[in-house]
Computed example of a mutant assay.
Amino acid sequence: MNSAQVPGEVSLGKVEQALDGGDRPPVGRYRLDLATGEWAWSDEVYLMHGFEPGEVVPTTPLMLSHKHPDDKGHVDGVLRRAAETGQTFSSVHRILDAQGRTRTLAVTGQGKRDPATGRVTELYGYFIDVTNSHRAAAARDATASIQASAERRAVIEQAKGVLMVVHGIDDAEAFGMLRDASNRSNVAVRDIADTLVNLFSGPGVTDLPTPEAIDALLADPRPREDA
């Protein structure tokens, strides 16, 4: 199944460009049919789980079998609540891919209701591979090293990606939010971006930042004296 078959409101190409400059984008789309338990994955999601596109039929049992044992209960609970409420949701968790490698994925999405019955019939959204972001954050904490200029640019792109996924906006609007916050606070865009990315991929993070948390950060991104 190619990525065009999976619905989504945010431009996948723009999110991919914002989150990663590598050869394989770390963002993929999915759709879960709640009646059958079958998933529709874009090619990227197959690759994140260590499969070739179309190699397996993605189902909820298959999905949960690849979750890290320590995170499986959390993920199952998130999906159950989303299926019941249809509200937007997000989670950060680890998986063991088909080759047994541990990866860290973020998932965000929302429910679609049947107009006739009002029942939630499917969930759809994005998987984001944040493995490298988590490793980079851990390395920064361990070494307290200063990021190079290229990495500074990368963190701005990642921050734009977070804004695009959470707020459903495009690249220009996301950068505009960072720029406006910088102008109001006299804090450099790259420093605001770094703080935002740490909300999203810092060590120990278990959920994506909510729109309210992001808005609060952008409203006052100045460093706290007790930080």
Results as ranks from 00 to 15, higher is better:
M1R: 11
V6C: 04
L12G: 05
G13L: 05
K14F: 07
Q17T: 05
A18K: 01
L19P: 00
L19V: 06
G21R: 10
D23L: 14
D23R: 14
R24E: 09
P25H: 11
R31T: 15
R31N: 12
A35Q: 12
E38V: 04
W39K: 10
W41N: 03
E44L: 01
L47F: 07
L47R: 12
L47W: 13
H49T: 03
H49E: 07
F51E: 09
F51K: 06
F51H: 11
E52P: 04
E52W: 08
P53G: 07
T59I: 02
T60A: 13
L62G: 12
S65L: 11
S65V: 09
K67I: 13
P69Y: 10
D70V: 08
D76I: 02
D76Q: 15
V78S: 15
V78R: 08
V78E: 15
R80S: 15
E84V: 01
T88V: 09
T88W: 12
V92L: 09
R94Q: 07
R94S: 09
L96H: 15
A98V: 10
A98M: 13
R101T: 14
T102M: 07
A106F: 09
A106W: 11
T108N: 05
R113Y: 01
D114I: 06
D114E: 05
A116G: 04
G118P: 14
V120C: 01
E122V: 03
Y126L: 13
I128P: 02
I128W: 10
T131I: 10
N132V: 08
N132T: 13
A138S: 09
A138C: 12
R140N: 02
A142S: 03
S145W: 05
Q147F: 02
Q147V: 03
A148R: 01
R153N: 06
E157V: 00
E157Y: 01
Q158T: 01
Q158C: 00
Q158E: 04
G161C: 00
V162A: 01
L163M: 00
L163A: 03
L163G: 02
M164L: 02
V166N: 01
H167M: 03
H167T: 02
I169F: 00
D170A: 03
A172I: 04
E173R: 06
M177V: 00
M177S: 02
A181S: 10
S182V: 04
S185H: 04
N186S: 15
N186M: 11
V187T: 11
I192G: 04
A193V: 06
A193I: 04
T195L: 04
L196V: 03
N198W: 10
S201I: 12
T206S: 13
T206V: 09
I214C: 01
D215G: 13
D215L: 14
L218H: 10
D220C: 07
P221A: 10
P223D: 13
E225N: 14
E225R: 14
